[in-house]
């Protein structure tokens, strides 16, 4: 029974990581490095929780979370795509704004529990009670793979991330493609955040979302920006994440505070190993223009 709870915990956390990673993956494929993800993750988590508390409608909460994250992400898109500003600093600005706003307005929700009648309808898969979002996240991963490698939009996204100069001259509508990519990112991260605050945690306290968004960026990188590999990456990190809660339960004398660092350490190691292997291979087909500002008429731009 205890094992089942552990597995369920892993599944739930992995689903949050997977949704956020798939979102980050798609914008990185389009050449944008969006550090703002931390900000709209927090916004969406709060919106989901607030909507659930006040309306008691779970579906509405998920939709509101996705919509709010999508809308908030547009700040980043305007800054980087239209105003050609530095991706990293723009992302940090969006993150700070999002974290600040969600914590400020979340203060009134601290300690208020979700309504009793809210719970996920379960689907029985091979004798295992799974909630539909877990399955949905896998379906989305496969769907994104199809989108990236089998559709016109997918080709466009990949080319925009790999070589925006060529894409532009080929007539690919770069701005439009990047808007679509960030919209998808916003929606997926919003879903993940809603799932996190409604199902995984389920409560609201300040600082609950810490680092989840940024972890997703690294996850997308070490999954080589591949939607299917990202499933493996997310489950790996989810396992290390739940280790922090499981080991003390099993009586292993390790401080849980140190174990909280485990997913981050694992991520750094995995990212380094994968990057190293990639450097050796000099592979084509990865977003080589990641975080580079594209401006049609200009030669070189360093800081901004």
């Amino acid at each position: 029974m205890r094992l089942l709870i552990i597995i369920n915990g892993i599944l739930e956390r992995a689903t949050v990581y997977l949704l956020a990673t798939e979102g980050s993956l798609i914008v990185q494929r389009a050449g944008l490095l969006n550090l703002g993800i931390e900000g709209f993750f927090a916004i969406a988590a709060l919106v989901a929780y607030a909507v659930a508390v006040y309306t008691g409608n779970l579906v509405l909460a998920f939709i509101a979370a996705a919509a709010s994250a999508l809308a908030f992400n547009m700040i980043f898109t305007v800054l980087t795509v239209h105003l050609r500003l530095n991706h990293i600093v723009s992302g940090l600005a969006v993150s700070m704004l999002g974290l600040g706003l969600s914590y400020t307005f979340g203060v009134s929700l601290v300690g208020i529990p979700l309504p009793q009648n809210i719970s996920m309808p379960m689907i029985n898969v091979f004798g295992l009670e799974l909630d539909p979002v877990i399955i949905l996240s896998i379906v989305i991963a496969v769907g994104l793979w199809y989108l990236l490698y089998r559709t016109k939009l997918g080709y466009q996204i990949r080319i925009v991330g790999e070589n925006p100069h060529v894409a532009d001259r080929l007539g690919v509508p770069i701005d439009k493609v990047r808007y679509i990519a960030t919209a998808i990112e916003g929606a997926l991260v919003g879903l993940g955040a809603a799932y996190y605050s409604l199902v995984v945690i389920p409560e609201w306290s300040t600082g609950v979302t810490l680092g989840k968004g940024w972890l997703a960026i690294a996850l997308a990188m070490f999954s080589l920006w591949h939607p299917i590999y990202a499933i493996g990456g997310s489950y790996l990190i989810a396992c290390s994440d739940s280790l922090a809660r499981v080991l003390p339960l099993l009586g292993v004398p390790v401080s849980p505070y140190l174990l909280y660092a485990l997913p981050y350490v694992l991520t750094i190691v995995a990212l380094s190993v994968v990057s190293y292997v990639e450097v050796k291979k000099k592979r084509l087909g990865i977003p080589t223009a990641l975080a580079k500002v594209y401006s049609r008429e200009e030669r070189a731009r360093k800081y901004t």
Binding site: K152, Y155, V166, A167
Partner: peptide, 24 residues
Amino acid sequence: VSQHPILVESLTVLENLALALERN
């Protein structure tokens, strides 16, 4: 027709043409 061909190195010729002409 550019002096330095505008093509995506990692894709096939066919995929490049499809991308440019927005075809499958």
